[in-house]
């Protein structure tokens, strides 16, 4: 039973660690499915986290924080969109620039306003998103096996988490069952086909970029207003890039994206749990190996050693009308 409890604890923490990954990964999915490569997820996550915490500090309310975080992230997304769509820029360069500016600017402003090395003040409970207990969580929690699963894994999360999980079927539905989704999938593969069908490539791509900004902004807000109670410089700590890896690993599809993010979140939780533990005969657990696993798996997949991850065909290529 002890093993089971430990499993529940690690899995629960993996689930929470997966939430920002899911949001950012789906954000990347929308953008890249439309043909706009986004390696700036990391930066936008930071911007969302910072703006969310900063505004919540003043308003004392998580919802205005959420709005601010999302708005700031969308703004940054639009800069990337302008560079990629209108200026036909190298999207990798643009994403790199956004990561740098976001990393520096959030820390700079945080430090200038609060003088705590870039950290924002600890937020009161009322300014955070709280765990929601689903009905019967307490009473049902006593039931063996299913009880703890319901109480700790299914119940007891905040609204952003539930939204993140709801977003997976929503994205799937929007992508495969709506006109917008069809056009979006088409424009990432062959923009000329969309253009000759009389649909604006530009409008589609801008919409995708905005959706991306909203979702990755939410992931940032989750970091500062649900997982922590403040913003801290560099607090995204590479999650944007893990989300990018998950996106590649999931081959740009929503359900596999969920599975991959859960796996990566679980690996993260496991490495935290195993930190400092000594295995008999082996010595300290090399937790770094677990940390590196998502990245290594992604490279192996990209290289075609296990399956093949083929990105949307037009991703990263500015659309220029041709004969």
């Amino acid at each position: 039973m002890e093993g089971f409890d430990a499993f529940i604890v690690v899995f629960g923490s993996g689930l929470r660690l997966a939430v920002p990954l899911i949001l950012a990964c789906l954000a990347g999915l929308w953008s890249e499915r439309s043909g706009i490569v986004d390696i700036g997820l990391e930066g936008k996550m930071l911007v969302g986290a910072f703006a969310g915490a900063a505004i919540a500090t003043f308003t004392g309310d998580p919802w205005t924080g959420l709005l601010a975080g999302v708005a700031a992230s969308v703004l940054v997304s639009l800069i990337h969109g302008y560079a990629s769509i209108d200026q036909r820029a190298n999207q990798i360069v643009s994403g790199t620039a956004i990561n740098m500016v976001a990393d520096g600017l959030t820390a700079l402003i945080g430090n200038a306003v609060w003088s705590q090395g870039g950290r924002t003040p600890q937020l009161p409970d009322s300014a955070l998103f709280h765990a929601i207990d689903l009905p019967f969580a307490q009473s049902f929690g006593g039931v063996p096996i299913l009880g703890p699963i319901y109480r700790h894994l299914i119940s007891g999360h905040d609204i952003v988490t539930y939204f993140a999980f709801a977003l997976v079927p929503l994205t799937y539905w929007a992508l495969y069952s709506t006109r917008f989704g069809l056009r979006l999938r088409a424009v990432g593969e062959n923009p000329a086909a969309v253009d000759t069908a009389g649909i604006s490539v530009r409008a589609l791509r801008y919409s995708a970029v905005v959706i991306c900004g909203v979702l990755v902004g939410l992931s940032g807000v989750y970091l500062s207003l649900a997982q922590a109670a403040y913003f801290q410089p560099h607090m995204s700590a590479g999650k944007g890039f893990i989300a990018l890896a998950a996106l590649v690993f999931a081959k740009w599809r929503p359900w596999p994206a969920l599975a991959t993010c859960l796996l990566f979140g679980f690996l993260d939780a496991l490495s935290i749990r195993l930190q400092g533990m000594v295995l008999p005969g082996i010595g300290p657990v090399p937790v770094q190996a677990i940390e590196a696993l998502p990245y290594l798996l992604t490279v192996v997949l990209l290289a075609g050693f296990i399956g093949k991850a083929t990105p949307p065909r037009a991703s990263g290529i500015p659309y220029v009308k041709e004969r």
Binding site: Y176, S177, T178, R179, F180, G181, L182, R183, A186, A193, V194, A197, G198, I199
Partner: peptide, 9 residues
């Protein structure tokens, strides 16, 4: 594509 006949497919 381009002749979907409404927002839902």
């Amino acid at each position: 594509l381009g002749a979907e006949g409404g927002p839902l497919l």
